[in-house]
């Protein structure tokens, strides 16, 4: 407050009078004031007590205020309910997206397994045959082995392996040094053990047709071929996945 001090005000005088009043003997002159002050103190304490006691003052609130509080609470409850609904909707959306993601992931995994069998990056197991060719005089050539592979493919062989080399679409058969055969960059020598997973009887029949692979092997000097059918064959040779140098997926 910047109100200028009124003339005639003496704060020291005021303090002196207060001290005198506080230390004065009780007299009869202030009875009315005292009674009123006592009643006031009593009422003040009572009011404070009743406000702080019952339900944070709700008990002593008037009906209008109670209505206002109630409608405030109702509006707040509505808002919170709307928020709950929105959050539940988004939770449902997220969980269904997660489900879709999981389904897509499962499908991609299955496709990767199938493609892995095709491209030779995963091991495979199943029924099939083993064609064993003994060739002490190195008279079995690369093209004979290639025709055996093609015959097996024609008969529906799904996975092929020759002496630890997985045979896939890109695997080439070339004549190797000293009568051996170079299969997919690896030199392979007799005895040749060609494993094929597929229908065993069909595969064996494809090899055994007249003029087929078995006859061709028998025609080579010193070479002998044996076909063994097996209900459970496992092909464990793998081929490292290689990125194609030239081919790109066309859209």
């Amino acid at each position: 407050m910047t109100t200028p001090q009124p003339a005639g005000v003496d704060s020291r005088d005021a303090w002196r009078r207060i001290r005198r009043v506080l230390t004065a003997r009780p007299g009869g002159r202030q009875t009315g004031v005292a009674v009123l002050c006592g009643v006031l103190a009593f009422a003040l304490v009572t009011q404070v007590h009743s406000t702080s006691a019952a339900g944070g003052g709700l008990a002593s609130a008037r009906p209008d205020d109670l209505l206002g509080i109630s409608s405030d609470l109702a509006a707040r409850a509505d808002r919170l309910r709307a928020e709950i609904a929105a959050l539940e909707a988004s939770a449902r959306r997220l969980s269904s997206a997660t489900d879709q993601g999981a389904a897509a992931l499962r499908e991609v995994r299955a496709r990767a397994r199938a493609l892995g069998i095709l491209t030779g990056t995963v091991a495979a197991r199943g029924p099939g045959i083993v064609l064993t060719i003994t060739d002490p005089r190195a008279s079995v050539s690369a093209d004979l082995l290639l025709s055996a592979v093609e015959e097996l493919r024609d008969a529906g062989a799904e996975v092929l392996q020759l002496n630890g080399v997985r045979i896939v679409a890109q695997t080439a058969f070339l004549p190797g040094p000293g009568g051996a055969v170079e299969v997919g960059g690896t030199v392979v020598s007799a005895p040749y053990r060609l494993a094929a997973i597929g229908q065993p009887r069909t595969l064996a029949g494809a090899l055994g047709i007249p003029g087929g692979v078995l006859d061709a092997v028998a025609g080579r000097p010193g070479a002998r071929a044996v076909v063994t059918q097996s209900p459970s064959l496992s092909v464990t040779a793998l081929r490292a996945p290689q990125a194609d140098r030239y081919a790109r997926p066309a859209r």
Binding site: V21, L22, T23, A24, R25, P26, G27, Q30, T31, V33, A34, V35, C37, G38, V39, L40, A41, F42, A43, L44, V45, T46, H49
Partner: peptide
């Protein structure tokens, strides 16, 4: 003085009786 006494009495009464 008597006013102070009255105030004290009022407060004490309010606290004790808790009407």
């Amino acid at each position: 003085m008597i006013v102070g006494l009255a105030v004290v009495v009022g407060v004490v009464l309010g606290l004790v009786l808790q009407p």
